[in-house]
Computed example of a mutant assay.
Amino acid sequence: MPTAELGRFEFESGQAVEDLTVAYETYGEFDGRNAVLVCHALTGSQHVADSPDGVAGQGHGWWRSVVGPGKAIDTNDYFVVCANVPGSCYGTDGPSAEGPDGDPYGTDFPPVTVGDWTRSQRRLLDELGVGRLHAVVGGSVGGMNALDWARRFPDDVRRVAAVAAAPRLDAQCLGLNAVARRAIRTDPDWNGGDYYGDSHPDRGLALARQLGHLMYLSKDSAGRKFGRRTAGREAGGDAFPSDPAAAFFPYRDVESYLDYQADQFVERFDANSYLYLVRAMDDYDLAAGYDSDAAALAAFPGDALVLSFTGDWHFTVDQSEDLAESFRAGDASVAHHVVDSDHGHDAFLVEPESVGPPLRDFLADGVAGRSVTDTAESDTEPSSYAPVHNSLFSG
């Protein structure tokens, strides 16, 4: 797994790490103009596509259906870079990394922001000899990261694609994230973040992740996937032996799914990192320091693609349309591509047939790409929000 030592890095908090280590992966060959930076989502890694040296706990690239030879982000054509963000736990410095005293930083690691992620990526690209990027692409909070590139380094990137993202979180998502963080901090094994011994706050992290999974589903997708079905046994009392009354009631498919996902997650992720990254997502506001989102994006002169999903209540179609309008107010050429989907927020990961074609054509031809559909008829007329059905791009 390649890493880069970026030297002293000062975070937006004012705190610094004397030699920031960033883990990254690259795919394809660089020709001077074909670099595409892919920004991962909350608990993703630099392992965006399949490769021989995968990241522990992630046997396959998290966007392997979209990135790779012959795929939408074609590594035969593009030099793809994906870096694990500061604060995470897949090789880039974060709370679980070794601090100056030889022990894990824990909560002594500096607070991180999405802006810190962007600046660390710029430093990494400098180390790799990459100047101006052909494109930055990101999904979910990775889409916020991509937007931050358009705001912070508008002349360093030709095209920006924000997939299932928004300029900021709304109050409901902020509240749910607050509950997730409290689940970790109230675990008796959290120990103020100093738990890097035998006991980790696995129960709190599991609950936080289960809440996240519920946020990523839509009502339709949850109903289709689980309904009210039971998980093949009469009762669920085994999970909580201290609650004997639970043995009277069924253990449902949705509970089984959440328990399985949580068990897998706590094996591969760090609880402090989850706290740090969720806070960074909560903190992000595209308009911070500006009068509006449009003012924040006014200096970006390139092409922008905003891609949203009708079943996503985490980052909604309306939020994406507001973002597109902010791009339209400046010099950018923008398309807002709406996909008719009931998969919820997970759609950007589980519907490559919906995500791939517009990304492929956007990277090749900008907003004029064949599969890139804008919901707005003009710069002045209201949007129709006409969704693009999956079947148009399948096969």
Rank of each mutant, 00 (worst) to 15 (best):
L211T: 11
T92L: 02
D253S: 10
A97H: 11
R8N: 02
P69N: 02
A299R: 01
A208I: 04
D285L: 09
Y251I: 04
S221E: 03
D101M: 11
D101V: 12
V66P: 14
V81M: 04
V36H: 11
V136D: 00
T380L: 09
A376M: 07
G193L: 00
G192I: 09
W313Y: 07
A83Y: 04
E18D: 14
G102K: 08
V355N: 13
E12V: 14
S13Y: 08
A247Y: 14
G102A: 04
A222P: 10
A364S: 10
G212I: 04
R8T: 15
D379Q: 14
E267A: 06
T75M: 09
F9E: 00
R122F: 13
P69Y: 01
P241C: 01
A271P: 10
A166M: 03
G142C: 00
E255W: 12
Y251A: 00
D77M: 08
A335Y: 06
R360Y: 07
Y260E: 06
T113L: 10
G344P: 15
E351R: 12
Y260T: 13
T310R: 08
A231K: 04
A239N: 07
Q15V: 08
V278E: 08
A247R: 15
D259W: 07
V141D: 14
A280D: 06
D126I: 14
H200C: 02
D365C: 09
R252W: 08
A49Y: 13
P69V: 03
A386M: 14
V339G: 02
V163M: 03
D103P: 00
F393Q: 06
V278R: 05
D312S: 02
Q210W: 12
L20R: 03
T316G: 01
A304M: 02
